[in-house]
Simulated assay, not measured.
Amino acid sequence: MKKVISLLIFIVAFSSCENKKVTVKKVEPVDEKEAINKVLDAWHKSAAEANFETYFEAMTNKSVFIGTDASENWKNTDFKKFSKPHFDKGKAWDFTPVKRTIYSYKDVEIAWFDELLDTWMGICRGSGVVIKSENNWKIEHYVLSLTIPNDNIDEVIKINKEKDSLFLKKLKK
C-alpha cells in the first residue's frame, strides 16, 4: 500500500510539473565581465581614497602584486606591509583605468585582463588574473608596468643598464 501511495504522489507531482516550463538562467560572460569591471574599478578607487581595508579585501589572501621595479614581487602580506604607510598618509596611489579588456575561458571561474591606466607616472599598463570565490570576484595576481614608446626604448635601456646589471648579478648568485 505504501508503494502505491508513493507512486501516486510521484505521478501527481510529475504531472503537475509537466506543463510548466522550468527555466534556468545561464550566467552570461557579459554579466561576469561587468562584475569584474566593478571589482577592478572599486579596487583602484579604494587606493585613490586610501581605503586600506577595501583595497585588500578585493584581493585574495594568496594574491601577488608585481610592481614596476624588478625587485617588486609582493606576496599579499608583504604588499600590505609595504602599502600601509602610503595608505596611512591619506592617499596611496591614483590609477584611473582608461581602457580595459577582460578575457575568460569556458566556465568563467577564472578570468584575466589587461588595462591602460592614467597615473602620476604617465600611462601604465596593468594586467592580472581574477578568480571567482564564493560568488565574488577577487584579484589573484596583478602586474603593473610602465609603457615605453618604441622610439624611446634605447634611452630607457641606457638608464636601466647599470641597475639592471647589479640586479641580475644578485639574482644569478
Rank of each mutant, 00 (worst) to 15 (best):
F95K: 02
L168T: 11
S6T: 10
N73C: 06
M121D: 15
D107A: 12
D151F: 07
K173T: 12
E18P: 01
N37M: 11
E72V: 02
I110P: 06
V24H: 12
E34N: 11
E109Q: 09
I139E: 11
E57G: 10
E115W: 02
V156M: 04
V24L: 11
K132Q: 12
K106T: 13
I123F: 11
I11S: 15
N51G: 04
I110C: 02
A47I: 00
H86T: 12
I102G: 07
K75M: 14
K84V: 07
A70V: 11
T54F: 06
K3P: 10
V24Y: 14
G122C: 02
S46N: 09
V156S: 05
K26A: 08
F56I: 02
L166I: 03
S83Y: 00
D107E: 14
E155Q: 12
V98H: 07
A42V: 10
I5H: 08
D31F: 08
A111T: 04
A50H: 01
V156K: 01
I11N: 14
F167A: 13
K132H: 11
W74E: 14
D114Y: 02
K172E: 15
V143A: 13
S46T: 08
W93C: 03
G126N: 12
V130Y: 00
K138E: 13
I157E: 15
K33W: 12
R125T: 06
C124M: 13
E32Y: 04
E32I: 01
D107T: 10
A47F: 01
D31L: 07
D78R: 00
W43H: 04
I123N: 10
I11E: 13
L117S: 08
V24P: 05
K132T: 07
K106R: 11
A58T: 06
E140G: 08
K80A: 09
P85E: 14
H141T: 07
Y103W: 11
I110Y: 09
G128L: 05
K170P: 02
F113V: 03
K170A: 14
F79R: 05
I11T: 10
F10E: 14
K2S: 14
L146Y: 08
K158D: 15
F167P: 06
G128W: 07
V64N: 15
K45Y: 03
E57V: 00
T101E: 14
V4I: 13
S83K: 04
N76F: 07
N76R: 04
G128E: 10
S133F: 05
D31Y: 09
E140Q: 12
K26R: 11
W93F: 06
V24Q: 14
I131Q: 05
A35F: 00
T54A: 13
G126Q: 07
K132C: 06
D151E: 15
E134K: 04
A35T: 04
I139R: 00
W112S: 11
P97C: 07
G67H: 05
E155F: 00
W93K: 03
D151H: 07
T96H: 05
D41K: 03
K38I: 01
D164H: 04
L40V: 03
Y55Q: 08
V4R: 07
K38E: 15
V156G: 05
C124E: 14
P85V: 06
K132P: 01
K26Y: 09
E162M: 10
L8Y: 03
I66T: 10
D41A: 13
V30Y: 06
